[in-house]
Structures are given as C-alpha cells and as structure tokens.
Design a protein around this nucleic acid. Structure first.
Ligand SMILES: [Mn+2]
Ligand SMILES: [Mn+2]
Ligand SMILES: [Zn+2]
Ligand SMILES: [Zn+2]
Lengths: 146, 146
DNA sequence: TAGAAAAAAGCAACATTGTTGCAAAAGATA
DNA sequence: TATCTTTTGCAACAATGTTGCTTTTTTCTA
C-alpha cells in the first residue's frame, strides 16, 4: 500500500498534466515529479540521471519539449551551454510564457534558482531596437553556500 | 601585392595578438579578423564556416578558448544552447572580464549584438544571495529589421 | 639568419549531445 | 473490452565537443 504523500503527489501530477491537456504517462509523471520536489532548475542531464535508467533519452527530450510548449516549464540560458529547465510559477500557457523573474546561478554549488520575487528590470534600449523578452541571469553565491 | 587595407589590418591583428602575449599564427589572425570585421557576435559554427575549410575544428575550439582566457572575446549565453562569442571592448585581461554591457538577440535576423552603451542594471537580490556577475540578454527586433 | 626549443595545428579516435523515422506499447475514448 | 490515438523505445544518424599524440610552425638565441 503506497504512502499518503505518494498518493497526493500522484494525484497532483495527474491533475497538472490533465490541466494542460496531456495524456498521463509514466515518464511525464516522473519528470514532472522531479521538478516538483526540486528547489532549483534541472538540466537535461540531471533529469536523465534522476529519472534513472527507466526512460529512453529521446523520451526525456520529447517530454521536456512538450512541457516547454505547454508552459509547464521554462528554459534558463546559462554560460556553459547547458539549458536548465524550471517549473513555471506564473500564468504560462500553451504558446506564451510570462516568466518575468530573474535567475541565479551559484558559483559554489552550481544550483540554478528562479528568484520569483525579483522582477526583471526595465532596460532602455538604443534607438531602433525594440524589446521583447528580457532574460537576467545573476551569478554569485547562494543562500546555502555563504 | 596586398592592398593597403589588408596590410593595416594585418598589422592590427599582429599587434592585438602580441599585446596579449600570444604567438602569431594563421588561425588566430583569421579568427580575430572575423571578429573585427563583424558587427554582431559569432558562434563556433559561424566561425567554422567563415574561416573556410582552412582550419581544423579542433583549432577553432582551442583558439576560441585562448581568446576567452586572455580576455580578447567574451561569451554570450543564449536560449538555444549555442554560445556566441564577441570582442571585448572593455578593459578585459587574462583571468578577468569586465564586460558590463547587455546583449541583444534579434528575433528576425538572429544576430546577437553587444550593446556597449547599455549598462547592466543593479539587481536587488533576496537576503542570503550575493551577486557576482550579472548577465542580461534582451530578445526583440534589431535596428536593421524594424 | 640558421638551428634549437617551444608552441600550436592537424589528425584520429572517441565521448557526449541532440534528431529522426518507424514499429511496438500504452493511454484515451466510447 | 475493442478501437483509435498518442507516446515510447529503438536504431541509426548527425552534430558538437574532447583528448593524446605527431607534425608543423613560430619564437628565440647564438
Ligand atoms: Mn525561472
Ligand atoms: Mn558583449
Ligand atoms: Zn550554492
Ligand atoms: Zn535583426
């Protein structure tokens, strides 16, 4: 008999997937769970490792792509050429993300955080340029590594 | 007989390399030239293409690494998992970059610009986090694509 | 300016990461 | 449960990045 926490969690996963019009599959549940139980962001590699030997690499790629498309997770660019993914907490949906927070990468533990309370600043661009999305990534030392 | 412009350019390249304590080689001159005659930033792939069939892929990787180490070029993180490189115009040197400008990626032509006159904004972080470098990438439509 | 020493380039082999088409398996629907 | 639809796994492939070693080029000094 599974533990209470597991049941709740499983229901939450199913609800989230259904809300986004996705069919319920083991890989989607597992990967979504990884995001829910995680403070920071995850790279493709992290997910491959933590999802265990259970899923094919291709499935992870496709699942992440679906999650991004649906507005369930957003991507975070980093300097080391490895995209990180994190849960969207804002009202993102299919085809439009509205993540206006900044990101923080710890030099020490290498964790990537969404700083949901820090709003992206206004940037005054030179004449001729028009801004769409603004991405801010701060690198430094995080709360756990001071 | 080479043209005047070529000679000057060649001297400039040599000077720049010497200033940074690098020996003068064909690949370094060629790749540095690509940056000098380029408005936007270049990806590894761009450089491989434009440097022609003349150099080995490995040489391009190693040359870019040397340029970054020496503070001749800096890297720009992008959302599509392909690092761009651009000339440092600030006083960067071996082991320390001081690029405090923001970057702009055009949705239309996909060019990446260093906006040298737009200074990185101050970011107020939550308690416990200390900031090192701040990276701002704005995505939108550039001056040539309006 | 020739020759020795040092540095860089090229090459080959390999590792990692990402993509695509297709058949099998699993999920949704009625 | 049967049928239709979607997703997965697999295989093959492409692109990107890394490493060790040999050859070539550059630098340095006599
Ligand atoms: Mn985020
Ligand atoms: Mn720049
Ligand atoms: Zn940390
Ligand atoms: Zn443009």
């Amino acid at each position: 008999m599974p533990k209470e926490a597991t049941i709740i969690n499983n229901n939450r996963l199913i609800k989230l997937l259904k809300q986004n019009g996705l069919s319920i599959t083991d890989s989607r549940k597992k990967i979504l769970q990884l995001f829910l139980e995680q403070d920071g962001a995850l790279s493709h590699g992290d997910i491959e490792k933590r999802a265990g030997e259970k899923f094919d690499r291709v499935t992870v790629y496709r699942t992440l792509q679906v999650f991004v498309d649906k507005g369930i997770v957003h991507t975070i660019p980093t300097a080391d050429n490895s995209i990180r993914y994190a849960l969207c907490k804002d009202e993102c949906g299919e085809g439009h993300h509205h993540d206006h927070h900044i990101h923080f990468v710890c030099d020490t533990c290498n964790t990537t955080y969404c700083l949901d309370d820090v709003v992206t600043p206004e940037i005054k661009l030179p004449k001729g340029y028009s801004a769409g999305h603004v991405e801010v990534v701060v690198e430094g030392v995080c709360k756990n590594c001071q």
